[in-house]
Design a protein around this nucleic acid. Structure first.
Lengths: 229, 229
DNA sequence: CTGCATCCGCCTCGATACTG
DNA sequence: CAGTATCGAGGCGGATGCAG
């Protein structure tokens, strides 16, 4: 005789599959362990996104699956659905407190995965937003003591900024009010920088990477975002 | 026309499902994101395990799935298969360098998941080994400066130890040579301690938790393994 | 056009049985 | 003890439908 461990599957109240272990890792994976879930969180770490933005930023996800993940994440209190004020009026998804608390875990997993970028797969896509995650990985809090600067990155048509404030760093999409430094490059160059297969020196020397701003700020940036070698 | 992105699926050389993104998080999840994989790593973080130990420590996993996960993890260089020297002679699985590098990510995810233990699910199982993971989470490096002690935990029939060495902590299964402190309790008590629904004071007062050793070491332990509140 | 819902084929998962 | 073989159920991926 087969005993169903799940409820009769009332539509909308599906009791998610669970490891049924009293363990914080297992419980975390009950919530985040399904396919695409952590990648949705990754994309939302840069700021609120519309449904369409998420679809574009998650190439390969099915539109149905994205909808389901967002619904689950919202129900779990990780993601919040919000209407932008007029005249925009569009709905955006953003991380709730619980979701923002995932940053350390996302960073830790990404840092572990850094080695894989040395062995690139043939047909892998790249988005500048994912490269900004690498910036978050390379950030060294102890080297940022006393530093209070904002760095802006313009990669092709996309803009991001990093706000460093004395040991803390925040990476967000969009321009910053008064950046101390503005970098400009194309997506290909940024890809190399993020994967550390292209050194900043070479990129600056070849002109594929340009910067505008104080030279002292550039020195700070290079000091603060250094690989742990 | 439908283009198959995968190879003809030759047995043994299956090209694993991939997000196909040039992103360290996506690549990490290509390797670790499938069901049970990180839980296998969690169990191996406490030391080498036989196949049977892993099956017991991962209730709910199918034996076929465990075999497949171990094979994949070994091929990825995360897990190593090793024969114990005679007279034991049994095969054990242990983490390779790459696998040991996963500890920060596992800790980070577990720490995020700690809040879930306040809302226990009805039929969730518990193993002392999972509680030792909580110990690793509660460890505060800055409070362990200058501390160089070993704490042993005897939970029902299982034994673990924690070696603290000036800002670093290592949690392993089995007894320690010369522990500075030995705790003894049953699984139920330990579960409450790990979930922080039972305070050490109450446990010691009620006698469900006993300790043997130096009182100064007990003070150190309490200082070093404190919640971040 | 955005923001989903529905449908369908395939592949992974989970449970059990079985073998060296 | 240490796995392999088998098979049904369900999650996933891709295409398409549809309402605001």
């Amino acid at each position: 005789m087969i005993v169903k461990s799940k409820q009769p599957n009332v539509k909308g109240t599906v009791p998610r599959r669970s490891y049924r272990q009293f363990c914080s890792l297992a419980r975390a994976l009950d919530i985040l362990g399904e396919r695409w879930t952590l990648l949705v969180v990754r994309n939302l770490l840069l700021g609120p996104q519309r449904y369409k933005d998420l679809l574009d930023g998650l190439p390969g996800i099915g539109t149905n699956l994205l909808a389901r993940r967002l619904k689950d994440l919202e129900q779990q209190g990780i993601v919040r659905r919000r209407q932008l004020p007029p005249p925009a009026g569009s709905t955006v998804y953003e991380l709730a407190e619980l979701g923002r608390g995932l940053e350390p875990a996302v960073i830790a997993l990404s840092r572990w995965g850094l080695w894989t970028l040395q062995h690139p797969r043939p047909r892998n896509l790249f988005r500048p937003a994912w490269g900004m995650l690498a910036m978050r990985i390379l950030f060294r809090p102890e080297a940022a003591r006393g530093v209070r600067e904002t760095y802006q990155w313009q990669i092709d048509e996309e803009v991001f900024h990093i706000r460093v404030d004395d040991g803390a760093a925040e990476v967000q999409q969009g321009p910053a009010p008064h950046p101390d430094l503005v970098f400009t490059c194309d997506s290909e160059t940024f890809r190399g920088l993020a994967a550390r297969t292209l050194s900043p020196e070479d990129a600056l020397a070849s002109g594929s990477l340009k910067f505008e701003g104080d030279v002292a700020a550039l020195a700070h940036f290079r000091e603060v975002f250094q690989p742990p070698d």
